[in-house]
C-alpha cells in the first residue's frame, strides 16, 4: 500500500529512456503502472529509479497497413478494445483487450507493459502467440531488433528483453477474409486474471480448416502452442465432433510444467485447457456446442 522510496525520471524519448536505464543500475520503466505499481505497493519490487515513459508519444497508437497491425507499446487496452479499425482488421485483439481486468485497468494499462511483465496469468502473451505477433525492441545506441513471442517469453515474469532495451511496438498480421480468431478464458473470480486462456486463429475454406494456430496460457509458465490440436484440426470440417476431437489432443501439448494453486489445481487447469480451446473454436466458427 505504501511504496518504498525511489527516484523518478520522466523520459521524453525512447533514446532518453534507454540512456536513463543505462546510467542507473536497478532502474525500472513505468508506463501505465498496472504491472509495476502493485509490486511496488507490496514492496515486492524496489527499484531505486523509475523511468516514466508514459508520455512518449512515439510509442502510442494503432496503425494498420499492408496486412499488418502495428500497436505502439504504450497503447492502452481501452484504446485497443475500442478501435473500430482494429475490430475489423484483427478483431481478436480488440476483444481480448476488452476482457482484461476492469475498466480502470484498461484505461491505464498498456499492451507493452503487460507483455514485458510476462505474467503467466495475463491475456496478451497467449493471444499474441496464437497470432504470430512480432515484438519490436529498441536498445542502446538506437539499435533495434524484432522478436517472436516464442523467443521473448522465458518464464513467469521473465523475458529476453535486455535491461537497457525498450519494447516499442507490437505487430500482428491482419486477419484475412477466411480467418476466424477467438480468445476464451476462465477468469479467476477474485483477480480476473486468466486461470486458463485459449486463443485460436483458424483459416476456413468452405467449412474446412486449412490452417490453425492455437495457444494456451494461464496454466503454463509461458504460452504454449497447441501443435497437436492444430494438426488434428487442419483438413477437417469445423463441426462439433471434429472440434471436440481436436481439442482432446491438448494434453499432448501440455507435457511441461503446469501451474496450480488452491483455487485451480494443475489437473483441473489442464482439463480446462481442452474446454477453453473448444469454447474458443466453437465461438470462432460459430458452431453451437449444445
Amino acid at each position: 500500500m505504501y511504496a518504498p522510496e525511489f527516484e523518478y525520471h520522466r523520459a521524453a524519448t525512447v533514446a532518453e529512456a534507454i540512456q536513463l536505464l543505462s546510467s542507473n543500475e536497478d532502474a525500472k520503466l513505468i508506463a501505465g503502472g498496472h504491472s509495476l505499481l502493485p509490486l511496488l505497493k507490496l514492496r515486492l519490487a524496489r527499484p531505486s529509479v523509475l523511468v516514466d515513459i508514459g508520455r512518449i508519444s512515439e510509442l502510442k497508437g494503432i496503425t494498420i497497413s499492408d496486412g499488418t497491425v502495428r500497436i505502439g507499446a504504450l497503447t492502452t487496452h481501452w484504446e485497443i478494445s475500442s478501435s473500430h479499425d482494429l475490430e475489423h482488421a484483427c478483431g481478436i485483439m480488440a476483444e481480448a483487450a476488452g476482457g482484461i481486468g476492469d475498466t480502470q485497468v484498461r484505461n491505464r494499462g498498456t499492451i507493452g507493459g503487460n507483455v514485458v511483465h510476462a505474467d503467466p496469468a495475463s491475456d496478451w502473451p497467449t493471444v499474441l502467440t496464437a497470432l504470430g505477433a512480432k515484438f519490436n525492441i529498441q536498445g542502446a545506441g538506437g539499435s533495434t531488433r524484432t522478436v517472436e513471442p516464442g523467443d521473448f517469453f522465458v518464464g513467469p515474469l521473465t523475458t529476453t528483453l535486455g535491461e537497457q532495451e525498450v519494447l516499442t511496438s507490437i505487430e500482428a498480421p491482419t486477419l484475412g477474409h477466411h480467418q476466424r480468431a477467438e480468445y476464451a478464458k476462465m477468469a479467476h473470480p477474485a483477480s480476473g486474471f486468466a486461470v486458463v486462456g485459449a486463443a485460436v486463429v483458424v483459416t476456413v475454406e468452405g467449412d474446412v480448416c486449412t490452417a490453425a494456430r492455437i495457444a494456451v496460457g494461464g496454466l503454463v509458465p509461458v504460452p504454449v502452442r497447441m501443435t497437436s490440436v492444430e494438426t488434428a484440426l487442419v483438413g477437417k470440417a469445423l463441426n462439433q465432433e471434429n472440434i471436440a476431437e481436436a481439442a482432446s489432443h491438448a494434453s499432448n501439448d501440455l507435457q511441461g510444467e503446469i501451474l496450480g494453486d488452491f483455487f485451480a489445481s494443475a489437473e483441473y487447469r489442464k482439463a480446462m485447457a481442452e474446454v477453453e480451446i473448444r469454447h474458443a473454436l466453437f465461438h470462432a466458427t460459430e458452431v453451437s456446442h449444445h
Binding site: 500500500m1 513505468i30 503502472g33 505499481l37 505497493k41 516514466d52 481501452w78 485497468v105
Partner: peptide, 13 residues
C-alpha cells in the same frame, strides 16, 4: 476524462 484507480497511479504521473 477517463477513470483510473488512483491507488494505482503515482501522483507524479
Amino acid at each position: 476524462g477517463s477513470t483510473v484507480k488512483s491507488c494505482t497511479c503515482l501522483a507524479v504521473q
